[in-house]
Amino acid sequence: MADLVYPRLIAAKLRSQLVYRSSFAIDLVTQAIAQGTELVVILVLFTHVTALGGFSREEVLLMYAFAGAAFGVADLFAGQLDNLPTYIRTGSFDVLLMRPLSTLPQIMCSDIRLRRIGRITGALGVMVYALAHVPIDWTPARIALAVATPVAGAVIYSAVWVVACSICFWIVEGREFANAVTYGSNAFTSYPINVYSRPLRWLMAFVVPGAFVAYYPSLALLGKQDPLGLPGWVGWTSPLVAVLAAVVAGFVWRFAVRHYRGTGS
């Protein structure tokens, strides 16, 4: 029975957002424009340089598109975790614990906002353009990788969201830290990681596995060697990294919930 509750909750939220169609359409366009502003930054940058970290404009656009689509999907389903400090501070999280449902899915289903699809649509448009303009020797394996990369990236981003927001169980006003990790990861993964300094690269690419959202899958699709020296097979491991990230996020969330003491309200 519990498995049937979540689709009903999601359906109710979606219906409520579609009641005001004009407002929904405006929000959708606004999100697409927001995604487009990040694209403009890249295009302007390439009016001054011919390559970035050894990658052409279309190759960087491919990384940007993979990262943007993955982040958009993660934001759609996991972005509600930004409200966790409010749940904890007001005692609403205690109510979630009283229900015969898992707390994490309850929060993730609490406020799915369809307007975020605008961001996903914009990124997918850039992805189609980039894939049509970069030299890829298409094989069944590369087709599967191109399809799996945004999905794996969304799982990685969602896992990062869960882990980063879990700190709010100990630091109630930890939203700024969580946002720095989640939204900062999106900005980081939109560019080749070899353009960043070594400390930032190790932190955001491997501790936070942002390099596996777009950079390494793009290398595998393009058949290019990693300027940082890692072997080529690393580019094919994003789905595995996504599974491992989800497992780690699940353990961290359960650990945080077990040590939650409540507000007393």
Results as ranks from 00 to 15, higher is better:
Ala178Lys: 07
Ala256Asn: 09
Tyr183Glu: 13
Ala144Phe: 14
Gly232Leu: 12
Ala130Ile: 08
Leu4Pro: 04
Val134Tyr: 03
Ala67Glu: 06
Tyr20Glu: 13
Ala187Met: 14
Ala34Tyr: 00
Leu84Thr: 05
Asp82Glu: 15
Asp82His: 15
Met63Ala: 07
Ala141Phe: 14
Leu61Pro: 01
Val248Trp: 05
Val257Ser: 13
Ser185Lys: 03
Leu61Met: 06
Asn83Asp: 15
Gly184Met: 02
Ser23Ile: 07
Cys165Ala: 11
Ser110Glu: 08
Val60Glu: 03
Trp236Glu: 08
Leu131Met: 09
Arg8Gln: 07
Ser158Glu: 10
Val29Gln: 10
Asp137Ile: 12
Leu76Gln: 08
Arg201Pro: 10
Val252Ser: 05
Ala178Thr: 01
Val181His: 04
Glu58Arg: 11
Ser102Met: 13
Ile136His: 00
Arg175Leu: 13
Gly122Leu: 00
Val29Asp: 09
Ala242Tyr: 05
Gly36Ala: 12
Arg21Ala: 14
Phe55Gly: 00
Phe177Lys: 00
Ala159Val: 00
Gly174His: 08
Thr139Ile: 07
Val73Met: 09
Phe71Cys: 02
Arg119Val: 02
Pro217Asn: 02
Tyr157Trp: 09
Ser102Phe: 14
Gly153Ser: 08
Leu52Gly: 02
Ile112Thr: 04
Ala220Val: 04
Ile136Thr: 00
Ala130Val: 07
Val60Tyr: 07
Ala154Asn: 03
Ser92Thr: 12
Ala148Cys: 07
His133Tyr: 06
Arg115Ala: 15
Asn186Lys: 11
Gly91Met: 06
Phe24Pro: 02
Ala152Asn: 00
Leu96Gln: 11
Val128Ala: 10
Leu244His: 02
Asn194His: 03
Gly72Tyr: 05
Ser23Val: 10
Pro150Gln: 01
Arg198Gly: 13
Val195Gln: 02
Ala148Gly: 05
Phe71Trp: 10
Val248Leu: 02
Ser265Asn: 14
Leu219Phe: 04
Leu18Met: 10
Ala256Gly: 10
Ile136Gln: 00
Phe66Glu: 01
Trp138Gln: 13
Arg57Asn: 14
Trp202Glu: 15
Gly235Thr: 11
Val195Asp: 04
Val41Thr: 08
Ala11Lys: 15
Ala242His: 02
Leu39Phe: 00
Leu124Thr: 15
Met63Gly: 02
Leu240Glu: 08
Arg99Gly: 09
Ala220Arg: 00
Pro135Gln: 15
Leu101Ile: 09
Ser110Trp: 04
Leu45Thr: 11
Phe177Tyr: 07
Thr237Ile: 12
Lys224Ser: 08
Asn194Asp: 04
Val234Thr: 14
Met1Lys: 13
Ala123Trp: 03
Glu58Val: 03
Leu14Gln: 11
Leu96Ile: 11
Val207Ile: 08
Ala11Ile: 12
Leu131Ala: 06
Ala242Met: 07
Ala152Asp: 01
Val213Cys: 09
Glu173Cys: 05
Pro140Met: 15
Val241Asn: 03
Leu114Asp: 01
Leu244Pro: 01
Arg89Ile: 15
Trp138Gly: 14
Thr149Tyr: 08
Glu58Gln: 11
Ala132His: 10
Gly184His: 07
Thr103Gln: 09
Thr50Phe: 12
Gly223Ser: 06
Thr149Arg: 04
Ala25Tyr: 09
Leu230Met: 06
Glu173Phe: 05
Gln80Arg: 14
Ala256Ser: 13
Ile143Asp: 07
Val195Tyr: 01
Gly122Glu: 02
Pro105Ile: 01
Gly235Leu: 00
